[in-house]
Amino acid sequence: MSESRKDQLSGLVFLAFSIFVYAASFSIKMTKADSLGPQFFPQIVSIVMGILSLVQIFSSTRKNLKEKREGKQTEKKPFAVNLPLLLSIALLLGYYYLLKPVGFIPLTIVYLFCQMYLLFPKGSFKEKKLLIISLCTSVAVPIAVYYLFYYGFQIFLPAGILG
């Protein structure tokens, strides 16, 4: 996607978001303690946001058309699924869902190792040294943090299956 296409798209998203904020403001319970009330700010903000997003769409469309006319448009790249990115997001969401049942120590060990795997370029773990470093860090950090917080600071991280 070219830069101007991207701007067009984000402008549209912002426009949709501002309409959403505006529409949802009507379900706010009105109060009369102050003359503006709780709907005023969200409405003003969404209107200004809507105008700005129109400016954004307009200017990026103009730029895009110009680029097209001048034939500067870059060739379209085929849309590719970025697996490490999607897996990282899945990993983070999984962490949220599993933290209470599984607990901090085991889940963080798994998270750390998987995340390192997803960051190191493919094939890095063929190198024994990197694999060992990653493994040791993944195991040592969560255990150390958990007990430091538990005994040192009296902050109890979710214990999960170990509780």
Partner: peptide, 25 residues
């Protein structure tokens, strides 16, 4: 330290920080 190792560790601390700032998962 390789970023690939450092960043996940930072995120682990972020989990701790997010959780302990108001004790909510």
């Amino acid at each position: 330290i390789r970023t690939e190792v450092l960043l996940p560790v930072v995120i682990a601390f972020c989990f701790v920080g997010s959780y302990s700032s108001n004790n909510r998962i």
